[in-house]
Design a protein around this nucleic acid. Sequence first.
DNA 1: ATAAGGTCTGCCCTAAAGGGAGAGTCAATA
DNA 2: TATTGACTCTCCCTTTAGGGCAGACCTTAT
Lengths: 269, 269
Amino acid sequence: MYSIGEFSRISGLSIKALRLYHEKELLIPTLIDDQSGYRYYDHKNVERARIIKYLRDMEFSLSDIGEILKDANDEADVVEFFEKKKKEILSRIHQQKNIIKNLELIIKTEKEAVMALNHTEFEVEEKEFDTLLIAGVRYKGKYSDCGEAFKKISKAMGWNICGKPFNLYYDSEYKEEDADIETCMPVKKGKNVEGISVRELPGGKGVSLIHKGPYEALGRSYEKIMAYIKGKGYRPKLPTREVYLKGPGMIFKGNPENYLTEFLVVGIQ
Amino acid sequence: MYSIGEFSRISGLSIKALRLYHEKELLIPTLIDDQSGYRYYDHKNVERARIIKYLRDMEFSLSDIGEILKDANDEADVVEFFEKKKKEILSRIHQQKNIIKNLELIIKTEKEAVMALNHTEFEVEEKEFDTLLIAGVRYKGKYSDCGEAFKKISKAMGWNICGKPFNLYYDSEYKEEDADIETCMPVKKGKNVEGISVRELPGGKGVSLIHKGPYEALGRSYEKIMAYIKGKGYRPKLPTREVYLKGPGMIFKGNPENYLTEFLVVGIQ
DNA sequence: ATAAGGTCTGCCCTAAAGGGAGAGTCAATA
DNA sequence: TATTGACTCTCCCTTTAGGGCAGACCTTAT
């Protein structure tokens, strides 16, 4: 006969747990002293304690364990409990993996933004651009309409999206209203659906300038890149691109002073 | 201005949750009517509610969310929270995968036992046996000593074990005490360690008989297989094998009437 | 006898709400 | 204006599997 402390050391279950299991009638001491109320356990309890501990380690609830111990005398009878538990855990894992995907998306976005902030001088650069598969929605309207277009593309393309969102501007002049805009996202694959065109955007030689700061001040950087192009005698090809490297995030609006936008004129001659 | 019910529909948070978030000062209504105590929300609360819901979906605790909303104004500031959360979830997934492994082990064992119970007639069969890589512990003693030997092998071989445990009997006669026994488990790979020999067990033509019932009654099946061998004029080769297809399980002792043991005499001539 | 240490019950605490009681409030209708 | 029905308020209890603590009681050794 073991006192509760000894039995706790034997079974690896805490005293509190043993008292709880007694209360829930999962593990009833062999003897309870009438006078003192002391619980005494013997070797027959060891086996049952081992089973309970094992099932707790498998994360069965106490009520499940109660049912298992009540209904089952043989491993064969618990298989259905185990199958059910397995399914539960698998679906839990699935859910957690989705969360991780979401977390990683934001982590990655931020890391890239920090890299961009650290490693560029925000000067005009000439670069070679690859052809890019994109999903785009083209419309005439205002810049601010692009939010809705992004939502539409996100919904339609889901996990196929593989890069930063951007706008293509088809007007050769600056237009406040009624501008000819195509809102785009790079994709791995995808099909044309109502209003969304999936196609290749040609690459080639181009110039790039990263703009740091609020969107209201984009004009200055626009002038700068155009002045560079003119200075070099290039003839810019439409559409121009505006890539939103870092803007208002999925969670916070963020500080507009840290927004990063990349102007691209691809296909200079 | 929205009442709590309207705001609940807008934000997708339950009324109970909104009241809780108010109490925890995570989401404070724009106006609280002095007379009635009614909470009123406006559009400025919508954004914060969206963030809170998003973070709850990522399974952040309310206190974490409080810290995030207090300390951070920008996505960049939350990256460390996200990294930490990601680590937590990954370790949780790891743990759950281990549980699943354990569950599957028992499920598989039981399914195989059920198959064995259904598909054999418990008659002597002649079969061809493959060579088997095993880890074995050899000793002189009683049958009941094998439990400890199995524990030793399990501990040393871990996840390399790939089949049912069995004993090899090297005595040509039945011995109660001081029998020459080798306790074995099939393994995928492994090295000789103190007391455990990892090697190939030769296969070949052999006879098999499955015994259903308690170990005490093994004698009858032993006689049966020996009678068969004698009747065919085979000369049995030592050691004989006793494979424990289903015995007392990891959880329950089970019903001995359903224990399954396979006798094998491999290498008949 | 006394002291030390073990054990008892009972109460409160955790996280994130959900459920319900009983009272008060708002808005529309008769 | 009165009433009705739908909302909302606060307060309290419940969930899980125990942990922590207080004050009382018990066992065992010296």
